[in-house]
Design a protein around this nucleic acid. Structure first.
Lengths: 219, 219
DNA sequence: CGACCAATTGAATTGATTCAAGGTCCGTGG
DNA sequence: CCACGGACCTTGAATCAATTCAATTGGTCG
């Protein structure tokens, strides 16, 4: 485990354009300005068991939300990219833990004293819920090829891309997100490559050659 | 598909004792009284694609929340029993559909005009979220025996039982909830029976003979 | 009793995993 | 600049857990 060595920036200005998402923007209007924490890859943002509460906004980079079984198997519940909010935990205690995947910047969202985050919090919680319900279908009822295809399609959407996907996480992260082994993820990517659906210019970049085929595979 | 033939009861009195859960009780205080709808087994409560919005309270019986793949595979996201709230859907449209599992009574929760359901809605949404995140770990990282054991332990807790579990749903429902086939569910139950952890007095009743062993198996 | 649906059980198959061996990439230091 | 080390990724072969297909049993209701 790396030592946690975050530089705290005192700048409170939001990102130049701000998050693209209307609900997130509206939510930010109800927060007190807060500094951005910088994380190197694989640092803990909050731990399992910690008393939680606040929400976080990803400024840049990638964050993963994980849970462990007693014997150490890991399930990644979700990845979060720039402009996305994470940190929803019921009750006082974190049942998941959050880590940076790559170099990531995270802003704490402190509600205004007067009115809290209001209805926006519910809206974003429901969106998170819906996203996770999609993932139940994937984990419970899809085979390896469908899982990987669905993952790539999801990344295409969220990165506002049509052709190049940036894989900021490594194969074992993808595996733990999709309920597979990293070998299987690697094999399916090769399968997609060999069938001409994608190319792999580098280990962390996917070029989508046939988007409709990919979408079809994703179920 | 059965014809939908619900008797609408005009009684507005809450259940004799009311839900055990403090948050749910507090939420009910903010709702206008509403009738209870009765459903026979396997009736649709709301459909995929319907415009949604309201929340529902299970008065008695069991409700399942499902989602389908394009080619008809089904994933059951959750079961809901008496005293539990369901119906959380982001945006305007239901992405899941809800059905009665057995004879079930469901009360619509209409918020008061003045203040809505308030913070309770967020609290219950977060609880739903947490429950579903548990399920991600189960679907993604547990084997068949662990899944079934975890399912039984969950039912024990929720039915406030220590010994007898009532299986109101059939094997194929359990399978679609756990990401297995109904044959595998049946085989694991036999395994648990043969190893003395449970007994099966009838097809819809489980007697837990060794709770700690069951909990251990559940991971 | 007979029909029907659900559940059980068995046997064969298969998709994914496990175990093992190389290969690639990248940063560091000689 | 290139060699080395280590982390990650790929690929192959053997294994295994769960599924599929098939037959039978059990339970319920007219």
């Amino acid at each position: 485990m790396l030592t946690q060595l975050n530089h705290l920036q005192t700048s409170n200005t939001p990102t130049p354009t701000g998050p693209h998402d209307a609900v997130v923007r509206s939510m930010l209007a109800n927060t007190r300005p807060c500094a951005v924490s910088f994380y190197h890859p694989n640092e803990v943002i909050y731990a399992q068991g910690e008393t939680g509460g606040p929400l976080y906004l990803v400024e840049f980079g990638t964050v993963r939300i994980c849970r462990l079984t007693a014997d150490g198997r890991r399930q990644i519940n979700s990845f979060h990219f720039a402009g996305e909010v994470f940190g929803f935990e019921p009750g006082g205690e974190h049942r998941n833990y959050a880590e940076s995947v790559d170099n990531a910047g995270v802003r704490l969202l402190r509600p205004n004293a007067d009115n809290g985050l209001g209805a926006n919090e519910l809206a974003i919680a429901l969106r998170t819920l819906s996203r996770i319900q999609d993932h139940l279908l994937l984990l419970g009822r899809m085979n390896a090829s469908e899982k990987v295809a669905a993952f790539l399609v999801d990344l295409l959407d969220r990165q506002d891309a049509v052709r190049f996907i940036d894989l900021s996480m490594q194969r074992s992260d993808i595996a733990d997100y999709l309920g597979l082994t990293f070998e299987t993820v690697s094999r399916v990517l090769k399968l997609l490559k060999d069938s001409g659906v994608i190319r792999l210019p580098s280990v962390s970049q996917v070029e989508v050659m046939n988007q409709s085929a990919l979408v079809r595979l994703a179920g």
